[in-house]
Design a protein around this nucleic acid. Sequence first.
DNA 1: GCGATATTGTATGCCTCACTCACAAATTTA
DNA 2: TAAATTTGTGAGTGAGGCATACAATATCGC
Lengths: 155, 155
Amino acid sequence: MNAPLPLTEVPTAASIDHVLDLHLRLAQGAVQRRFSDIFSDLGITQTQLTTMILIQENAGTSQSDIGRTLQMDRATVMGIINRLEGRGLIQRGQSPTDKRRQTLAITEAGSAMLSIARERSTELGNWLKERFSDAEFHMLAALLKRIHEVDIKAF
Amino acid sequence: MNAPLPLTEVPTAASIDHVLDLHLRLAQGAVQRRFSDIFSDLGITQTQLTTMILIQENAGTSQSDIGRTLQMDRATVMGIINRLEGRGLIQRGQSPTDKRRQTLAITEAGSAMLSIARERSTELGNWLKERFSDAEFHMLAALLKRIHEVDIKAF
DNA sequence: GCGATATTGTATGCCTCACTCACAAATTTA
DNA sequence: TAAATTTGTGAGTGAGGCATACAATATCGC
């Protein structure tokens, strides 16, 4: 078996410049893989879970709201909502005030699944935390936040 | 226009536990979007560019090597290589020593594209760096590294 | 009040990435 | 030599992300 190629040992200009982007991508991939493992029996993805939590904790939200919060296209959100609704985990209803809007709500089944998911979430959290001190953990979150928050401001 | 939903203002157990994962995902998404903008005329993705750089700086690498380095499945790497080869940016050849292996090399066209891409890469790097001090920038990269490097070690 | 503009959801279609499973050829090991 | 491993490939599935277009509704400016 060949050893993985050296990443930092190829100090070209371009390599250095996008090193952060690379680490970001690899880290995200690693978390995603770990997530799939932990949640495999629930058959749910990171995005789907976050979406459900958002709906649960913000009763009556709309797809657009979710899109803005999670930085996703309206069409993308629709796909996710479709999948979740198709599995009976959430429900669309109509807003009493705005007829364009559809309120989103968690179903019984969705609620049950979320209970389990919250435990698993802790497991994922621990997997992450074991790499960091508390200070580092919060620092990391804060630094990452700067990347996407400034992104929002640009609109 | 409705304000985005509050993220940190919903301090449920689960929310807190996967806050890091969420910020990671959002940050990665933001970078990806920025990347698309900057590289739009080149029609190349982050993964594709990283793959090409890896090939250029490690002449004769194989698909498996790339997969190990970038933590991707062999089948996934093949898809990427197929696309790049289809556009004439890279070339497959045969390894003189191992007949299973295929050596990968950058073509003329690929090399030309990489020259341009390296400049753009700097632009992306600056976009990232303007959020951080030098110390923070390196700290962030180091912390992210811990997430995917420990992941490797698990195998 | 009315017309222009914006918002919301939806549908369609296209693309990248990522995975599984299966298979064949070549190589390494036991 | 036989067994296990590595490498590339193919087929199939699915999530996610994008642009574009359309219709219904709401809101804003006048």
